[in-house]
Design a binder for these strands. Structure first.
Length: 151
DNA sequence: GCCAACGTTGGC
DNA sequence: GCCAACGTTGGC
């Protein structure tokens, strides 16, 4: 099983929104590196749910990849803000995955705490804060869940 | 709201 | 293919 980190601004879509919805499709990724990470996901993989542009920015919960990558429907909707006129149905540019709510961390782990943890110095989030879909190593995964008192 | 860091675009 | 200009992200 692989591990990932998904970022979302809580004012747009928060962990509580996911809890309410139970599952959703991860729309709107328009960055190639992030898209490639989406396409590498397999059903059953797990992801940290991270709140960006939040006070504090923090890992707040856990989700499961419930369906592997498929074309992002929003890229074809002219009225949608994620519409991409350069994409085609024959050769879609952008992908989504489905995710399912697993749970909240008992205590959210702020970015600052991740930066302070020596064992996480190679974590993508610590080194490239702009990538919105990131891989997480198994050891990083375990450490973050422990820091968040996830049970 | 500011601004640094990063990604993308497009002229050449 | 280079790189300046521009737009976006995201921490603070």
């Amino acid at each position: 099983m692989a591990y990932w980190l998904l970022k979302s601004e809580p004012s747009v879509y928060s962990i509580d929104d996911l809890k309410r919805d139970k599952s959703t499709f991860w729309e709107g990724v328009r960055n190639y590196q992030a898209r490639n990470n989406l396409r590498a996901m397999k059903k059953g993989d797990r992801a940290l749910f991270y709140h960006s542009n939040a006070a504090p920015a923090a890992v707040v919960g856990i989700a499961e990849i419930s369906k592997a990558a498929y074309p992002d429907p929003t890229q074809f909707l002219r009225s949608n803000k994620y519409f991409d006129g350069k994409s085609s149905k024959e050769n879609p540019r952008w992908s989504v995955v489905d995710i399912r709510y697993i749970g909240r961390l008992k205590s959210p782990v702020p970015l600052e705490a991740l930066k302070k943890a020596g064992a996480l110095s190679k974590m993508v989030l610590v080194n490239n804060s702009r990538l919105s879909v990131q891989p997480v190593s198994e050891s990083e995964w375990k450490i973050v869940l422990e820091m968040g008192d996830f049970r």
